[in-house]
Design a protein around this nucleic acid. Structure first.
Length: 328
DNA sequence: AAACGTATCAACCGCGGAATA
DNA sequence: GTATTCCGCGGTTGATACGTT
């Protein structure tokens, strides 16, 4: 049984493991800025990084990718995760697609460390809920195949949305400026330059400036307020203030901070709309009379979105293809 | 102040499925 | 149609930060 799936790439001689160093991060980021994320296999070779492609991809998607929000989960996010977990099970990637600023890894960790416990306590304290909040998911009864089916369907929907979005948004302005505004807390967020995108193939950020800023931040003593993990430095600043525009197959969204939402709703804002606006990032403020379809694609009225999602089961969202399985 | 226990999260690992030869 | 390679996902691990005794 040599090949059940792909053998791990770690046995290649000299492949480094363990935490990433700032230097490695820089190399990876600048490479991806230039070449995009199309071909992970070639990343180690082309960059000289002594990491396997998998490790590079992981580092990028879980940490370096633009638009990742770090730090505490908001209540909204928490609710979303609980809701979606009940709906989708432990499909963290699928769940993460609704929480675009969070990585699947983050969500998974948060679930395992916080939410699971929380729900357990809740259950113990007498909540009756038929909902099974454990490992499996509420709908897991019949549903391995259904799960796959759902996943596929979701992907199809996403793609359709994307295509429609592109088609519909051709006329819209593609520029969007990243303001260094808000993000909730404290931050000494510095305004990183956003190489404003010319849609699909755009580079999401000005490499030189951001990297030099990155360097600057590394020079500073770590701020305990910020993030405590070794991999954090101040990079999150950069990352958080950029719009995504890379051509990553999975994470190439752009997050506009110029949308109508404010404060806490920054999160809701990107919710759902993200998938649809990933390429042009056009701020939906330009609400022209929208067709139903366009509304679906571009509507990011925060409250609305959130409401919608919270009230919408997957079944509903997929036009009643499934029988409704009572959530609440 | 030290020892110990717990929580957190970045990274690893193995697998399945898609893509390609 | 088969074998091989690559990508992405989810479960798990291990280092370390944090809290308690």
């Amino acid at each position: 049984m040599q090949h059940m799936g792909r053998p791990p790439c770690f046995d290649k001689i000299g492949n480094k493991k363990g935490p990433w160093t700032p230097e490695e991060d820089i190399i990876l980021v600048s490479y991806i800025q230039e070449h995009g994320t199309g071909n992970w296999r070639s990343v180690p070779t082309n960059t000289g990084l002594m990491r396997c492609s998998k490790s590079c991809r992981l580092r990028w998607t879980n940490y370096l990718r633009p638009g990742i929000k770090r730090g505490n989960f908001t209540e909204h996010e928490e609710e979303m995760i609980i809701h979606l977990q009940a709906l989708l099970g432990n499909r963290w990637a699928a769940i993460a697609s609704y929480l675009p600023q969070r990585t699947d890894n983050d969500i998974k960790n948060y679930w395992n460390t916080h939410l699971k416990k929380k729900l357990k306590l809740k259950d113990q304290s007498g909540s009756d809920e038929g909902v099974d909040h454990q490992e499996g998911h509420s709908c897991s009864s019949s549903s391995h195949s259904r799960g796959q089916w759902e996943r596929r369907l979701q992907t199809d929907i996403k793609m359709a949305k994307q295509a429609l979005c592109e088609a519909l948004s051709l006329h819209k302005s593609t520029t969007h400026v990243v303001s260094d505004s808000k993000p909730s807390s404290s931050s000494h967020h510095q305004p990183y330059i956003n190489a404003s995108s010319s849609s699909a193939s755009s580079i999401y950020v000005s490499s030189y400036q951001n990297i030099s800023r990155l360097m600057e931040n590394w020079m500073k003593p770590p701020n305990s307020n910020d993030t405590n993990s070794p991999g954090c430095y101040s990079f999150s600043n950069m990352v958080n203030n950029n719009t995504g525009g890379s051509s990553s197959s999975e994470g190439a969204y752009s997050i506009s901070t110029t949308t109508t939402c404010t404060q806490d709703h920054a999160f809701d804002d990107s919710l759902l709309t993200l998938n649809s606006c990933r390429h042009d990032g056009s701020p939906p403020e330009t609400h022209v009379p929208l067709s139903l379809l366009e509304n679906w694609l571009f509507d990011d009225d925060a409250a609305q979105c959130h409401e919608d999602l919270m009230n919408m089961s997957l079944e509903e969202s997929t036009a009643g293809l499934f029988q409704k399985e009572a959530m609440h």
